[in-house]
């Protein structure tokens, strides 16, 4: 659905050229939800603006939704939807008018029916006469998304779709985004700097930092790249005996004992847990509690970029 090679963009400033994006290669398959993850200023929005024809690349090529970005931007525009971070509605214009205009500009056949269906689906029914200034944050976001979907594009770009929404609206929006993929086979390319969002919503992630893609994979693959899972054991007594017994276990990479606590770094911790407990049992050690912590995407980010996403953002 998207193939980009060496996509780059520099901006002229008073102090010479600044490279916002320095050669991005990316491939997105049809029907995927792909998350584009990175701190502010990493080049997420610049890349998105290039892929959506809003900004001409200074170098590189891309095919988006079957059309060449440089040679046929109009062809790309007809086949994509784009929902900007700031939205794109006029506060005073009624919801119905915005949708009607958008549908007409795309030449959508069966306009009224399409708009009614979209409104029902995105929980916007009965709001047609209301100006967008009178909508709640979640409603306005869903209106932005409806505007991006009115022509049934096979590919939708969402820039920070849930920024500024309350937790309930976020969860609700995630559901709507999943339904796009599951029911219509729509490919979704979204940017986010929320790790939980990337984790919960995306089939695949691309991590961008300082204008370059530094890692990609499914959330699980990426997490596996980070030093394994952490298993913490609380023991009444015999911590040192437990450590010695577990260190020999093939899945354990590292084991440390501290007072009544043993900390292990384990590959595939969820699968190996049973074996660890058996090894403890064989060594005759009583277990009080056991905790498995999987690495978070923040750990992944820290590993690939050398800084925490939360700090960077």
């Amino acid at each position: 659905m998207i193939q980009a090679r060496g996509l780059a963009r520099t901006f002229p400033t008073k102090h010479g050229e600044v490279a916002a994006v320095r050669g991005v290669d990316l491939d997105v398959a049809p029907g995927e939800i792909v998350g584009f993850l990175g701190p502010n200023g990493a080049g997420k929005t610049t890349t998105l603006r290039m892929l959506t024809t809003l900004l001409a690349p200074t170098a590189g090529t891309a095919t988006v939704a079957g059309h060449d970005l440089r040679a046929d931007p109009a062809g790309v525009r007809r086949r994509i939807g784009y929902v900007a971070q700031t939205g794109g509605t006029d506060p005073a214009t009624p919801v119905g008018e915005e949708l009607e205009l958008q549908a007409r500009l795309y030449g959508v056949p069966g306009r009224a029916e399409r708009i009614a269906k979209l409104c029902a689906r995105l929980e916007l029914d009965g709001l047609a006469a209301r100006p967008s200034a009178a909508l709640s944050g979640g409603q306005r976001r869903r209106l932005d998304i409806a505007l991006g979907l009115v022509h049934r594009p096979p590919l939708v770009f969402l820039d920070e779709p849930t920024t500024g929404l309350d937790p309930q609206s976020r969860g609700n929006l995630w559901e709507h985004i999943r339904r796009l993929r599951d029911e219509d086979g729509t490919t979704v390319f979204l940017t986010t700097h929320y790790l939980d969002e990337a984790d919960a919503l995306c089939d695949r992630l691309l991590i961008i930092d300082r204008g370059r893609i530094v890692a990609e994979g499914t959330p699980d693959e990426l997490k596996r790249r980070v030093s394994g899972d952490v298993v913490t054991l609380e023991l009444g007594a015999g911590a040192e005996r437990a450590r010695a017994a577990l260190e020999a276990h093939p899945a354990v990479r590292e084991a440390t004992a501290d007072g009544g606590t043993v900390r292990l770094t384990v590959d595939n911790g969820d699968r190996e847990l049973m074996g660890l407990v058996r090894a403890l049992d064989a060594a005759g050690v009583e277990l009080t509690s056991l905790r498995l912590a999987r690495p978070t995407l923040d750990d992944v980010f820290l590993t690939v970029t050398g800084r925490s996403l939360r700090e960077a953002a």
Binding site: L54, I80, G81, T86, G87, T89
Partner: peptide, 10 residues
């Protein structure tokens, strides 16, 4: 408000 940008993607 982003209206110009929204229209330019159409």
């Amino acid at each position: 408000s982003g209206v110009v940008e929204r229209l330019r993607v159409t």
